[in-house]
């Protein structure tokens, strides 16, 4: 049993478990949408005159920030107590071959260490993928009014047309980077 749990979980186990977060958070009095926390952190940490950050972050967002802290702790528990048996994630052969062609050299861990490491950060690909990429995640999520959890899961589950538009955008941007920018960058 322990070994089975340590193996990577298949989509048909993980997907329904993720979907249950939506009713769980609604029952608790919140709503599934992780990127709201970025706004709450700005509102809490920066004394500002900007309207967008002038609200009572504690009453509006403390529950969600606690949820985000839980994500960090749960991930840490999983990586320590249930470490995966293989150092390399079993992506498809086709993906591995394509990534080698565009310049990915290492396949250990959760992300290629040549980019996603403190050494990688000071290279051009590392700077673009970490710093510029992170900026777009924050800017885009707030502009779109939600991220993958808020639109692709919560929003689609509530049959929201705006969320469908946002998800089409998520994929348009992702495909653009995957097919045109990463080959030039790596």
């Amino acid at each position: 049993m322990g070994e089975l749990i340590a193996e990577p979980w298949p989509w048909y186990v993980a997907g329904p478990l993720i979907g249950l977060i939506v009713p769980l958070l609604l029952w608790a009095g919140g709503e599934f949408g992780v990127s709201e926390n970025l706004r709450h952190i700005c509102a809490a940490a920066l004394p500002t005159q900007i309207d967008f950050f002038r609200y009572d972050w504690k009453s509006k967002g403390l529950w969600n920030l606690t949820f985000a802290l839980g994500i960090v702790l749960g991930a840490a528990a999983a990586s320590i107590l249930l470490p995966p048996p293989d150092a390399v994630i079993a992506i498809s052969d086709a993906t591995a071959a394509d990534l080698k062609i565009i310049g990915v050299e290492t396949f250990e861990g959760l992300a290629p260490a040549q980019v996603f490491s403190w050494k990688g950060l000071v290279t051009l690909p590392g700077f673009v993928m970490i710093v510029v990429g992170g900026f777009f995640v924050g800017f885009g999520a707030r502009y779109a009014g939600g991220c993958t959890s808020g639109h692709a899961i919560s929003g689609l589950a509530n049959l929201q047309l705006p969320s469908l538009l946002a998800v089409v955008g998520f994929f348009a941007g992702g495909l653009l980077v995957t097919w045109f920018i990463l080959p030039l960058l790596l």
Binding site: F139, A144, C147, S149, S163, L165, I181
Partner: peptide
């Protein structure tokens, strides 16, 4: 939705992470 969504998608593919996984990656 479509402009913000597309910008978010650029960041999602560059970093390989959306906000939930960013917190999870730090925990990892």
């Amino acid at each position: 939705y479509w402009i913000g969504g597309t910008l978010f998608g650029l960041g999602w593919a560059l970093t390989g992470a959306c906000p939930g996984p960013i917190f999870a990656l730090i925990g990892n």
